[in-house]
Write a protein that binds this DNA or RNA. Structure first.
Lengths: 111, 111
DNA sequence: CAGTATCCATCAGGATACTG
DNA sequence: CAGTATCCTGATGGATACTG
């Protein structure tokens, strides 16, 4: 259903496909936080990323939404409130993210 | 031992660290092929990547070597022969790569 | 609060040619 | 065979200001 290739270049290895989807600078981190914390609001997420700008945030969120990894729920209140959460498809990425998180924890000096 | 941060920016999440290390366009694919096929020569690897240029290949290989993920063995014969293989540290990445490969296989239309 | 709109910087990645 | 050396391009990401 969502298996169309939007560019016609031939991928030689399915790993490339995966990397294309989640290789954005903040995508794995966004997905990870949503997976761990459940749903998060825009600014909550932004604080967790600490350093990302609005433009890049919304850009990455939009791409993740278009790829069907996250759901965006907008409450038309004043002030506005928007919540992001993983979709079922997004949850299928968690094993990758868990491995990446595990490896990063063991190999980085990020105390 | 290799836990120094070569840039002083603070990472907020260990996933970022992992992505920095293997997020290069060809790195995961190189590591994957080396993990599956054992050791490979420069041109064998290059054929498997199909499309990569010399410059980018050697660049990615050099970075992977500097990060301690791959070993470079040079035979001073004529013609020269160079073999690349995963180090023990490189092998610790395999669980991530396996998950990425699995996910990519299931979600891409790459027949 | 949750974004767009602009404009700009960077650098990873690429084409091509040369070399030990 | 296995690379460097140059030079170049473009996509990604960033700073800042404005908005429904």
């Amino acid at each position: 259903m969502d298996t169309q290739m939007n560019n016609n270049e031939k991928l030689k290895c399915s790993i490339e496909y995966t990397l294309k989807k989640i290789g954005g600078k903040w995508k794995t981190v966004i997905l990870w936080h949503l997976g761990v914390d459940g749903s998060l609001r825009y600014n909550e997420l932004r604080k967790l990323l600490s350093g990302v700008t609005h433009k890049v945030m919304s850009q990455q969120l939009k791409e993740l939404e278009e790829d069907g990894f996250i759901d965006r729920t907008q409450y038309n209140t004043i002030p506005p409130k928007v919540e992001y959460a993983l979709t079922e498809k997004g949850k299928t990425l968690m094993p990758i993210l868990e491995q990446m998180h595990l490896w990063g924890t063991e190999h980085s000096d990020n105390s």
